[in-house]
């Protein structure tokens, strides 16, 4: 009962109970923008961290090569 009442209230007022605070437009371009920017914001930090990790790996290889030659 304690769960049923809020559920019924939400069902009765779908305009108030929006699932997403920024879902103000239901157009196809808006949907594409959401997907695109989500992918962008997810991949960007991974790419940056990956780039730094790759640079460190290359630098270690380079230094070890120098140590072997010395």
């Amino acid at each position: 009962m304690s769960r049923l009442v809020p559920a019924l209230v939400l069902l009765a007022s779908p305009r108030v109970a929006q699932a997403c605070a920024v879902c103000f437009s239901a157009t196809e371009s808006n949907r594409g923008a959401f997907i695109g920017t989500t992918a962008f914001l997810t991949l960007l930090p991974l790419m940056m961290i990956g780039s730094v990790a790759y640079y460190v790996y290359r630098r270690v290889q380079e230094l070890e090569g120098q140590e072997r030659e010395a």
Binding site: T27, A33, T37, F40, L41, L44, P45, V52
Partner: peptide, 26 residues
Amino acid sequence: MVLFIGTEVMLFAGMISAYTVVRAGM
């Protein structure tokens, strides 16, 4: 500086993403 720039990139990426979503909804 690289770490700082990384946070700055995310700041601008967030703003550009918000702008893109709002613009696409118009």
